[in-house]
């Protein structure tokens, strides 16, 4: 049975600068992802991995090509429409956790949902608690980021990425700042969530060990997909 396609980009290009200083960072990217898929995005530094994730996450517009997700033409959507789409359908995990220092672990997990709704609700609180339980941090829910280890912070960041039940989670080097043990713990978690919650993951990494745990490899070289 064919899984439902959630993401489709064709002929996608991204240029920075103009004239003589113009740089072609992404060149003719064609990519599709299915629901529940877990893919690794590999490539050397400067190959365009982060730029591709940023564009797929609607944080930046491509210079050309098409970009559709769940049937929505994100290439031509307004900034407000892209922001709303992002808050409802996309989750992010970054190399650095980027938790808000003034909020507790529980409040950080609720943050994306609260931003969209304009308030924190009991439902959000329950869902955030569930997610913290799932990432093994139920005893840290009232701790602020400064009182947690690097691995714990990144697990909170994973839980935060899932609060809105995103269709696709974009993870940019999510284990890049962690030791091997913590990295494995985070990858176990991502794998479990992918299996149980059905969210798709696109994980940018240099690490073959991490890539080996994904179902699919997408390799970028000099701005082009050379293997998908």
């Amino acid at each position: 049975m064919t899984k439902e396609q959630i993401l489709s980009v064709t002929g996608l290009i991204k240029d920075f600068g103009e004239g003589e200083t113009q740089t072609h960072v992404l060149k003719d990217i064609n990519l599709a992802m299915a629901a529940g898929e877990m893919a690794a995005l590999l490539g050397p530094s400067g190959s365009g991995k982060s730029t591709l994730l940023t564009i797929l996450g609607t944080l930046m517009r491509a210079t050309g090509g098409t970009h559709e997700m769940l049937g929505v033409d994100l290439m031509h959507a307004s900034e407000a429409q892209r922001t709303e789409f992002r808050s409802k359908n996309l989750g992010f995990v970054f190399q650095f956790h980027h938790l808000l220092p003034d909020l507790s672990a529980l409040e950080n997990v609720m943050m994306p949902a609260a931003c969209a709704a304009g308030r924190e609700t009991a439902t959000m609180r329950a869902r955030a608690s569930e997610l913290l339980d799932a990432v093994g941090l139920s005893d840290r829910r009232d701790f602020r980021p400064a009182a947690m280890s690097g691995g714990q912070r990144q697990r909170v960041a994973v839980a935060r990425a899932l609060i809105n039940n995103p269709v696709l989670v974009l993870a940019d080097e999510p284990t890049g700042n962690l030791d091997r043990e913590s990295a494995d713990h985070v990858m176990d978690l991502i794998h479990k969530i992918n299996q149980t919650m059905g969210s798709s993951f696109l994980i940018s990494t240099h690490d073959e060990h991490i890539a080996g745990r994904c179902q699919r490899r997408i390799e970028l070289l000099d701005g082009r997909i050379v293997r998908s």
Binding site: G57, T83, R86, S87, F92, H98, P112, C115, A116
Partner: peptide
């Protein structure tokens, strides 16, 4: 700046 950036990335509107 980075906190504001992360909130915007997570879907916070300019209005918020």
């Amino acid at each position: 700046q980075s906190e504001i950036g992360i909130m915007r990335a997570m879907g916070a509107s300019r209005g918020l």
